[in-house]
Amino acid sequence: MSDIAHHIPEPILAAYAAGSLPRVFEVVVATHISMCDSCRGALAAHEALGGSVLEGLAEAPVSDTLLAGVMDRLDHAQPDAAPAPKREGIYPGPVMAALKSRPPRWKSLGFGVKQAILEAGDDGSLRLLHIPPGRAVPDHGHSGLELTLVLQGSFSDETGAFGVGDLEVADGDLEHTPTAGEDAPCICLAATDAPLRFQSFVPRLLQPLFKI
C-alpha cells in the first residue's frame, strides 16, 4: 500500500527481525509488514545483515553427543504446520491466524465500540477494536507500550491522522483520545503489554471486566 504514512520504528523492526518481540507485538508488526512494501524491504535488509553477521562468526567445534542429539530431533521432527491463512476481507493473514480463521467474536464496550480479544496473557493482550464513525475512545494514557494498526477506516488523535496500514506507537509519554473518522467504522488491531490508564471513572471501573 503506497499511502501508508506511519511505519514501524527501527528499534521495533530490529527486535522483530531478531525474534525478540513479545508475541502480541509480533502479530501487529507481521500484519503491518504484510501491508507495507517499505517495511517489508526494510525487514529484508535487517535479515540480510543478520545473515552476514552469522557468516562472519568463527566456527566452533561440535561434540559428537550434541550432533547426535540434533540429528535425533530432526529424525523425530513434527511435519510442517498447515500453510498460513490467507487474507480474508480486511484481515491480513497474520490476523486470520490469530483468529484461527474464524470471524471475530465481538463484544460491546459501550457507545457502539466493540472489541474481540485474540490473545491475553502475562506478555500482554492482542485485540481487534471496532469504533463507529465519529466516535471517540475514552481519553487514556499508557502504562507500557501499545501498537495500533488500522485495518479499515481511520482515526485521529493528538499525534495526527492514521489510515489503513498506518501504525501508531504509544508509550507512557502519550495521553490521547483516538477518534474514528467520519467515512467508515474504524477497525484496528491493537497490542499492549500493560493496562491502559483511563482518566474517567467509568472506564476505570469496567477495565478489569474488559481486560484493557
Score class of each variant (00 low, 15 high):
183 D>F: 13
141 G>Y: 04
189 L>K: 03
73 R>G: 15
60 A>S: 08
146 E>N: 09
67 L>N: 10
118 L>G: 04
114 K>L: 09
180 A>S: 08
147 L>S: 05
154 S>W: 07
94 P>A: 09
101 S>P: 02
79 P>D: 14
64 D>T: 12
78 Q>I: 08
113 V>P: 01
157 D>P: 02
172 G>Y: 05
130 H>F: 11
96 M>W: 02
131 I>W: 00
90 I>R: 11
138 P>K: 00
165 G>F: 04
163 G>C: 08
174 L>P: 01
83 P>S: 13
98 A>C: 11
69 G>I: 07
159 T>K: 13
158 E>Y: 06
126 L>K: 11
177 T>Y: 02
132 P>F: 09
123 D>W: 01
118 L>E: 07
78 Q>G: 10
113 V>T: 01
180 A>R: 00
139 D>L: 10
157 D>C: 11
121 G>K: 08
176 H>C: 10
84 A>Y: 02
119 E>W: 07
86 K>D: 13
85 P>I: 05
145 L>Q: 14
134 G>A: 00
61 P>D: 12
108 S>N: 04
127 R>P: 03
61 P>G: 08
136 A>Q: 12
92 P>Q: 06
180 A>I: 07
141 G>W: 06
166 D>A: 15
117 I>D: 11
176 H>L: 08
126 L>F: 14
103 P>S: 03
131 I>G: 00
116 A>E: 04
116 A>H: 15
119 E>Q: 14
168 E>S: 09
155 F>L: 00
129 L>M: 11
109 L>M: 11
116 A>R: 05
105 R>G: 05
166 D>N: 15
131 I>R: 00
144 G>F: 11
188 C>W: 00
90 I>C: 05
